[in-house]
Computed example of a mutant assay.
Amino acid sequence: MKNGQTRNLTEPMYYILLILTNPHHGYGIMQKVHTFTEGRVEIGAGTLYSLLSKFTAEKLIRIDSVGERKKTYVITEKGRDVLEKEYQRLQRLVRDGDRILTRERQS
């Protein structure tokens, strides 16, 4: 998110930020996303750690703690703002779809 630009989040990005509203370590994030989405969204280790690195650099998340073999991450205020904006955008998409699809069903 350079220079205040916003962008749409991919599903993995969205779910990582959503899960990090509570602190989790990398493998825990993958498990939580899998469970939360009932297996619909799978995040591989390469994708996860690439996004964690990117999110950390963009200050959307921060390292909460460092253990012997794992780091725990948590969302920042900036990350929460990005997540909230994406949530609102997705709600608008659903409302727009409902308006059109409901109208079609009534015709």
Rank of each mutant, 00 (worst) to 15 (best):
102 T>N: 14
56 T>C: 02
80 R>S: 11
10 T>S: 12
1 M>R: 05
71 K>W: 07
62 R>C: 10
16 I>F: 07
92 R>A: 13
53 S>P: 01
56 T>G: 07
102 T>W: 08
38 E>T: 12
7 R>D: 03
25 H>L: 05
82 V>K: 09
102 T>V: 11
63 I>D: 03
62 R>S: 14
57 A>Y: 06
96 D>C: 00
101 L>P: 05
82 V>W: 08
63 I>N: 02
103 R>F: 06
5 Q>R: 14
5 Q>N: 14
73 Y>M: 01
17 L>S: 11
24 H>M: 14
75 I>D: 02
53 S>N: 09
70 K>P: 00
43 I>L: 11
25 H>S: 15
15 Y>R: 03
59 K>L: 04
80 R>C: 04
10 T>C: 03
18 L>D: 12
61 I>K: 06
27 Y>C: 08
98 D>Y: 02
70 K>R: 08
31 Q>I: 07
58 E>C: 05
79 G>L: 01
79 G>N: 01
99 R>M: 13
57 A>G: 04
53 S>H: 08
23 P>C: 03
8 N>I: 15
4 G>W: 03
82 V>I: 15
81 D>C: 00
90 L>H: 07
35 T>W: 10
16 I>T: 06
99 R>E: 15
95 R>T: 11
21 T>D: 02
20 L>Y: 06
11 E>G: 00
77 E>K: 13
48 L>G: 04
106 Q>W: 05
106 Q>V: 05
71 K>N: 09
98 D>N: 03
101 L>D: 04
37 T>W: 10
66 V>D: 00
74 V>C: 13
57 A>P: 02
22 N>T: 10
35 T>C: 07
36 F>L: 14
55 F>T: 04
46 G>P: 07
91 Q>C: 02
34 H>F: 14
75 I>R: 02
3 N>T: 12
29 I>Y: 00
4 G>I: 05
88 Q>T: 10
6 T>L: 12
17 L>R: 08
73 Y>T: 00
40 R>W: 01
103 R>Y: 06
63 I>A: 06
68 E>G: 13
34 H>D: 10
19 I>W: 09
45 A>D: 05
27 Y>L: 14
102 T>P: 00
75 I>T: 03
15 Y>A: 00
7 R>W: 04
96 D>Q: 06
53 S>K: 11
29 I>V: 08
